[in-house]
Each structure stands twice: as structure tokens, then as C-alpha cells.
């Protein structure tokens, strides 16, 4: 049984914009799944339909084999969602937001309070529990939305850019928290523009662009499609000009002691180091120029743009 199964999902807005063009998608139970795509690709529309905020034009969505149309009460009970934009009552105290959300899902008040206390402590919001939500910082508001989405103990959690605008330290603690939730059995679907986040946490991925799924595979398989990577090499001694390498044609001098080299899948890093050593150039350190997934993502979506323009 899939945690989420989408068949032929279409959405055409009243303006005529075709946001989703009949997508199919399956997410396994227990998965940590990335749904990626550039702005306006259709990610939020797709999430909006799953969570009941957007009317679909056609297609079918099932959550743990329950249709969101014919079994919407039971299907929604299994789903928790964290939207991209803050959507709580700013004038309500933090703790009340969580308890009330539990109430909407039929969680008795005493149990909702118990869970609220648990998540407020886990998410570092305990000392702010009696404050009005408007007094929280941006990062705290994001954590509040995650706590709110978990208050009814959902089996599927959808996070639409949960770490947007959050500093790196907090982002990492949120990653740990989400991995912990996933380890406990909750299926997680994540959309994010921080691709290192998706690469680190997600086992499977779908890339959506122009309302269509253009890739749907495991993260490992997707990254294997990357046929070249760009490395930045830091050199021990200064060099004045771009070194001439027989096997690597795309070499660029960044400054006197660092160069950038594109390494195709047919070549190894050892080949590169050896060729440089033969020229008397010693590499002290090296790093990927950009995250691997990011590189692939840009290639895939750029290619799709060209196709759509053709």
C-alpha cells in the first residue's frame, strides 16, 4: 500500500493556467520523499489538492488507499501538512493553536494538551507557549507549524518548504527532528529549494516542472544520471595561468591558488590529481562546486524549459 498515490492529476485554474497536466506519483509508506521543482512548477498546487485547499480538475488522489473524495474524513485524519506560508491566528497563544488543531482532528483536549507540551518542548518553543504567535520569530513560527501538523499523530506528513528563511543551525536541528519522526514510521514528503536538504534526507525523489513529473526515481539513481561534476581545487603553490590538462578540457582559473575543473563520469579524480602532479601542481584540498543534486536539478529543469519553448 502506498502512503500517497496520485493518478492523472490535473488542475486548470479559472485564469486558464494549467498548473498540473495529469501527473502520476506514488510514495511508499515510511519513505522520506522529495518533491522538487522550480517556482511555479506545480508543487504547491499538488500539495494544496492533497490537503484539501485546492479543488482538482481531474484525477485521483489516495492516502493510504483512501480516496480524498469518497473517504475524505478518514484520509485527512492520516495527513498532516505544513504549508509554505504562515496560516495560524497570530493573536492566539502558541499552545492554544496546537490544542485547537488537535480539536479539529477530534483529539480530546487533555490528550491534545499532552501532545502539545511534548512537541513544544521538542521544538524548543516551551518557554513561548503562552505568547501570542505574532510575537514569535520566523524560525519559531516554522517550528510551530511543524508541531501543529503533528498534533493528531499523522501517518503522512507533507512539508512545503519548512526551512525557508531559517538559519543553518536551526535548519540542521529541524533536519534531525524530521529524521527522527521518519524513523518512528511517519512517511514524509518534502518540498524545498535547499537541495542539500533533499539530498541528505530523502530516499526517493520526483522532479516536477511545468505541471509534469519529469523524473521519479530513487535519489541514488537520480544522482547517478549526473555525468559530470565540477570540483574546486585549492593548490599549494600559486600558478599564473590555466594548466593544460590532456583529459580535462573545462578548466578555469579562479585565482592564483585555486582552479575549477569539470570531471566527466568517464574520468576519475585520481586521473585529475595525477595530471596535475605531472605538471608539478600539488592539490591541498578540494570540494564540489555545487551540491550534486542541485547541478542535476538545474540541468533537468533547464532542459525541460528548452523543450517547452521549442
Amino acid at each position: 500500500m502506498y502512503a500517497l498515490e496520485i493518478k492523472g492529476l490535473r488542475k486548470t485554474y479559472a485564469s486558464g493556467l494549467e498548473a498540473l497536466k495529469g501527473i502520476d506519483l506514488q510514495v511508499e509508506e515510511g519513505d522520506f520523499f522529495a518533491l522538487l521543482g522550480p517556482n511555479g512548477a506545480g508543487k504547491s498546487t499538488c500539495i494544496g489538492i492533497i490537503s484539501g485547499l485546492v479543488n482538482k480538475s481531474a484525477g485521483e488522489v489516495r492516502i493510504f488507499d483512501l480516496s480524498i473524495d469518497s473517504s475524505f474524513i478518514r484520509a485527512r485524519s492520516l495527513l498532516g501538512s505544513v504549508p509554505q506560508e504562515f496560516n495560524f491566528n497570530n493573536f492566539e497563544p502558541v499552545e492554544e493553536i496546537l490544542i485547537n488543531q488537535g480539536g479539529f482532528y477530534g483529539v480530546p483536549k487533555a490528550l491534545a494538551r499532552e501532545r502539545a507540551e511534548h512537541y513544544l518542548a521538542q521544538l524548543g518553543l516551551w518557554q513561548h507557549r503562552r505568547q501570542q504567535a505574532r510575537r514569535l520569530s520566523g524560525g519559531m513560527k516554522r517550528r510551530l507549524m511543524i508541531g501543529r501538523a503533528l498534533i493528531h499523530d499523522p501517518r503522512l506528513l507533507i512539508l512545503d518548504e519548512p526551512t525557508a528563511g531559517v538559519d543553518i543551525e536551526l535548519r540542521r536541528s529541524m533536519w534531525d527532528f524530521l529524521e527522527q519522526i521518519n524513523d518512528q514510521g511517519t512517511t514524509i514528503i518534502l518540498t524545498t529549494h535547499y537541495l542539500e536538504e533533499a539530498e541528505r534526507m530523502c530516499r526517493n525523489v520526483a522532479i516536477i516542472d511545468n505541471g509534469e513529473i519529469i523524473r521519479h526515481s530513487s535519489m541514488k539513481n537520480l544522482l547517478r544520471q549526473l555525468n559530470s561534476e565540477i570540483f574546486v581545487l585549492y593548490l599549494r603553490d600559486d600558478i599564473a595561468e590555466v594548466p593544460r590538462l590532456a583529459s580535462f578540457d573545462n578548466v578555469r582559473l579562479l585565482d592564483y591558488h585555486s582552479i575549477e575543473v569539470e570531471v566527466h563520469e568517464s574520468r576519475s579524480i585520481n586521473d585529475l590529481i595525477s595530471e596535475l602532479a605531472a605538471l608539478g601542481i600539488v592539490v591541498e584540498r578540494m570540494r564540489n562546486k555545487v551540491n550534486r543534486l542541485e547541478e542535476l536539478f538545474v540541468k533537468l529543469t533547464a532542459k525541460n524549459d528548452k523543450l517547452s519553448l521549442a
Binding site: S51, L53, R74, S81, F86, N87, N89, Q101, F104
Partner: peptide, 12 residues
């Protein structure tokens, strides 16, 4: 303020 969405996503 969009907090109607709290009700819309819930099984209510």
C-alpha cells in the same frame, strides 16, 4: 489571515 486553512485541511 488564512487560518481558515486549519479547518480546511482537518477532517471536519
Amino acid at each position: 489571515s488564512r487560518h481558515i486553512e486549519e479547518l480546511q485541511v482537518a477532517p471536519v
